[in-house]
Simulated scan of single mutants.
Amino acid sequence: MSGLSTGPAAPAELRTEGLSYGVDGRHLVDGADLHVAPGETVGLVGPNGSGKTTLLRCVYGTLAPTHGRITLDGRDLAGFSAKERARRVATVPQDGSGAFELTVREIVAMGRSPHKRFWETDTADDAARTDEALERVGVAELRDRSFAALSGGERQRVLVARALVQQPSLLVLDEPTNHLDIRYQLDVLSLVTSLGTSTLLALHDLNLAAYYCDRLYVLREGRVVAHGTPHEILTPGLLADVYGVAAEVSTHPVTGAPTVVYLPPGAADGRSAAASGAVGRR
Rank of each mutant, 00 (worst) to 15 (best):
P264G: 11
S146L: 13
R143L: 00
I107L: 10
H231I: 08
S250C: 08
G31H: 09
L201N: 07
G49Q: 01
G138V: 05
R183F: 08
V45F: 09
A90R: 01
T199N: 02
R223K: 12
R215M: 03
S272Y: 10
H35M: 14
L4I: 14
P8N: 09
L208Y: 05
Q166D: 05
I233M: 10
L219S: 06
L191G: 03
D205T: 00
A226R: 15
A267T: 02
R15W: 04
G68D: 04
T235N: 14
K52H: 09
Q156H: 07
G3Y: 13
S50L: 09
L208T: 03
T259E: 12
V158Q: 09
V137G: 08
E120N: 09
A86N: 08
L203D: 12
D269Y: 03
G244F: 01
N178C: 01
L234I: 07
I107S: 01
H27G: 00
A163G: 04
A149R: 09
D24S: 15
S5C: 10
R69W: 02
C58H: 03
S151T: 01
R136D: 08
R117F: 05
S20P: 00
W119N: 06
D122N: 09
V45D: 05
E17H: 09
L189F: 11
R215H: 10
R220H: 15
H179E: 00
F118T: 13
R183L: 08
R105T: 02
A240C: 08
A161Y: 11
P176Q: 11
W119L: 15
N207F: 08
A128C: 07
A267W: 06
V242N: 02
R281V: 10
G22I: 06
L203E: 13
L216A: 02
V254Q: 15
L234T: 05
R223M: 04
L234F: 05
S190L: 07
E175H: 12
V158R: 08
G228Y: 14
V45S: 06
R155H: 10
T16D: 03
D144I: 02
L216F: 04
L34S: 04
